Amino acid sequence: MATMKSVKTGDRNHIAVVDVERPVPGPKDVLMKVRACGICGTDTFFLHIGGMPAGADGSMRSIPLGHEPAGEIVEVGAEVTDLKVGDRVVVNPQGVPSGIIGCGGEHGALSEYLLLEDAEIGRTVTLFPDTVPFDVAALNEPMAVARHCVNRSEAKPADKVVVFGAGPIGLGATIWLKLRGVEHVVVADVIPERLETALAVGADAVINSAEEDVTARLTELHGQAANALGQPRAGTDIYIDAAGVAAVVNTTIDSAKWGAKLVMVAVQKKGADIDLGGMLRSELTLIASQGYPTEIFEVTPELVEHHERFAQLISHRIPFTEAEHAFELALTPGAAEKVVVTFDA
């Protein structure tokens, strides 16, 4: 029996690197050698809780991790006609029948090999050229999340936008907004290094929200408008929450002009007080953005075209042999922007 190494949840806040059976593709499947896989906040969430709930008794089961892979096909089932050995592919983690890859399904992409069931270009995988490094191609899934957020915002070129949170999703949204031709995009965060990255990928201005008055700075940058009661507010049209803290929502409510939008793409922390009544004063529209209903492969051509720009989102490239260190970085607040685990050829 051929085996491979795979990362699973271990004790709380720890991974386990285990030997498991190497998958064998069926007639409609392909086997991908994973060459790079990003670490997502979802992965660290599963580590924080110790896996996935297994039953009503509160017990947890260990699950394989990783849902942001890029790699190359090494085996092809007899009935697969549009893929061949050597093809470089990115994956739709939600496009397999055995459950979402790396989020409780049977397979995780932080493994040396990944089985892709019922493989089909445009549904399960899509191709990318050898001009794009595997680590950058592995950004395809999170950039689809960011793209859906921007699509949900319906931002137009004349709009003025602020993105809260300069992590991968916030910075990805910033890039998509600028590629969409949006006139002015501001990024707010509390970590100076992340704000530097925001400027490098195309933000027009940044705000250190730990040191600056956000509303005053937005008014300076986007002009002055008013809410439904005629009270002075910033001229910002769209607020994007890629941070997931109540302070962002309340800052938006305090700053929002009449008819502004708030797009929420980050997972919100529970138990925080939010001034919902304040939304009335601006008729603020709250828009939720979840996943990538259509965007998973729509983003790939532009990711390929602008891959050097997207590459700036990666702060750490860590070899699979040092997977524990990669997760230590990902679990430590402020230690890394985007960690991508790389595999030998």
Score class of each variant (00 low, 15 high):
38 G>N: 00
318 I>A: 00
90 V>F: 01
125 V>Q: 14
261 K>A: 12
8 K>P: 06
110 L>F: 14
185 V>N: 12
165 G>A: 09
89 V>D: 07
308 E>D: 08
298 E>D: 14
16 A>E: 15
14 H>N: 09
340 V>Q: 04
226 A>W: 06
6 S>A: 09
106 E>Q: 15
209 S>L: 13
12 R>G: 11
282 S>D: 10
187 V>D: 02
282 S>M: 14
287 I>S: 02
122 G>V: 10
42 T>L: 10
62 S>A: 11
151 N>G: 15
203 A>C: 00
125 V>T: 12
284 L>Q: 12
332 T>D: 08
178 K>E: 02
211 E>H: 05
288 A>Q: 15
208 N>P: 12
8 K>C: 09
206 V>A: 05
297 F>N: 04
240 I>Q: 05
267 V>C: 15
136 V>S: 07
329 L>Y: 09
209 S>N: 08
14 H>T: 11
328 E>C: 09
20 V>N: 10
41 G>Q: 15
121 I>K: 11
220 E>S: 13
65 L>C: 06
103 C>P: 01
117 E>F: 07
301 P>R: 14
174 T>G: 05
54 A>P: 02
248 V>M: 06
14 H>W: 08
258 W>G: 10
47 L>T: 14
126 T>D: 14
303 L>E: 11
124 T>N: 06
286 L>H: 02
